[in-house]
Computed example of a mutant assay.
Amino acid sequence: MSTVQDALQALTDLTPSREQILADTLAGLSRTARQLPSKYFYDARGSRLFEQITHTPEYYPTRTELALLNRVLPDIARVMGPRLHVVELGSGSGRKTALLLAALQDLVAYTPIEISRAALLSSIDHLAPALPDVEMLPVCADFTRPVDVPAPEREPARRLLFFPGSTLGNFASEDALALLRAMRQTMGDHGLALIGIDLHKDPALIEAAYNDAEGITAAFTLNLLVRLNREVGSDFDLDGFRHRARYSTERLRIETDLVSQRAQDVHLDGRTFHFEAGEAIRVEYSHKYTDDGFDALVRQAGLQVAQRWDADSPAYGLRLLRTL
């Protein structure tokens, strides 16, 4: 029987160290076109803010994916079969996960891989009591790097990777391809992956989702600087940068920046980084897909789309992948 305490005892903690965060930050600020990794959005406050974003009127992806899951879960469970070990990349709050796990037959184990320890523990606290017969094997780690998945006590029929929320779209094309290749390796020859993808649609609808009227997304983006100031000792002036998110119809992606409001210097680890007024730090991509573009991407990774489920409006999809 699985309990919250059992899950905590099984926790594999590979939280990024201060040294890793510092190295990534210095590398990003040293680029000609400056960047900061979006994976560091998700400290405890960042995870709470993102959960609030998913409830805003403008942010359609979460409610659309939840509704789609509710509609097609019987078909998903039938296609996947029994005795799965579900491995989720970026577990977040676990709302979608709870629906999926409850629908599957004779589920063997669940391994959430989440960079935010707070979000990971919250998810397990919610899921473990509801699924007492499922072995919980949480891993606190950066899933963009190779992670050894714990082996459950009971042998599963196959492994299913669950990657909802169109999180794949947060990666530049070459990084998305690398992640898909790593997923293929983790799946194994007979494994599957269920991925949520946001589809190209009215640019105004997309852009509004990343610029909510309450300013929660702006607070979420700026919280990245709060975290860096606290954890690696930078001195970003929080009033000196503003959130900006624009949709590129040429590249089919939201490009989110923190824009310097004036000429200013930022100091970190004995180094000075000068910003001109209007200079931007790219902090996130959110790619939107066409079916042709997505199919071409996954084939490069040695995968193929085995099944498609779509929401009609706004356009959003779940894709079941298998190895070629």
Rank of each mutant, 00 (worst) to 15 (best):
R271G: 01
D142V: 07
E284C: 14
K39Q: 09
L89S: 12
Y289S: 07
I124W: 11
T167M: 02
L131A: 02
R308P: 08
S122E: 15
R181G: 15
Y42G: 04
N70E: 14
S47P: 03
P314E: 01
I216C: 07
L180H: 09
Y110Q: 05
Y285K: 00
D198I: 06
L73M: 10
R262I: 04
Q264W: 06
A151K: 14
L320V: 06
L225R: 04
N70K: 12
I195E: 00
A182Q: 15
I254S: 02
V149S: 02
L89E: 12
L29Q: 11
A311S: 15
A263C: 11
G191P: 04
H126V: 06
N170M: 05
Y40M: 01
G191L: 08
R145W: 00
T167D: 01
L177I: 11
L258F: 07
A209F: 01
Y210C: 09
I124D: 09
C140D: 03
C140F: 05
S173F: 03
Q20S: 11
D265S: 14
L179K: 06
T167A: 05
E276V: 03
A219P: 01
V226L: 02
E135M: 05
L225W: 07
A178F: 02
D202K: 00
V226Q: 09
K39Y: 07
R322A: 15
K96H: 08
F50W: 13
R18P: 01
Q264N: 06
G278R: 08
A263I: 02
S91H: 10
D198A: 08
P152L: 05
D148K: 13
A141L: 09
D257N: 14
D202P: 00
L194Y: 09
L224H: 06
R159K: 14
D295K: 10
V266Y: 13
Q300K: 13
T249M: 06
Y285Q: 01
G90C: 04
Q5W: 01
R71K: 06
R246V: 15
H267I: 03
Q304G: 10
P156V: 03
P150N: 04
F236K: 10
D291A: 11
A130R: 15
E135T: 09
A213Q: 13
R262V: 04
G191Q: 11
T290L: 07
L192A: 14
K39D: 08
D125I: 01
R31D: 10
H243A: 04
H243V: 05
A306T: 11
T32D: 12
G94M: 11
S17E: 03
T249S: 14
D198H: 06
D125G: 13
Y247F: 15
L69M: 06
A128H: 04
Y59S: 05
G188Y: 07
Y285G: 00
E58T: 04
V72P: 00
Y289A: 08
G94N: 10
L73E: 06
D212I: 04
K39I: 12
A44E: 14
R322N: 13
A301T: 08
V149D: 00
R117F: 12
P82R: 12
V232Q: 05
A109C: 06
Q52M: 12
L29D: 10
T186Y: 01
V305F: 12
L104M: 13
G278D: 11
I115P: 09
L68P: 00
R227K: 14
Q35V: 10
V79T: 14
R271K: 10
F143N: 12
V4Q: 08
V108Y: 11
L101K: 11
F241Y: 05
L161Y: 09
I281G: 03
L100K: 03
A23F: 00
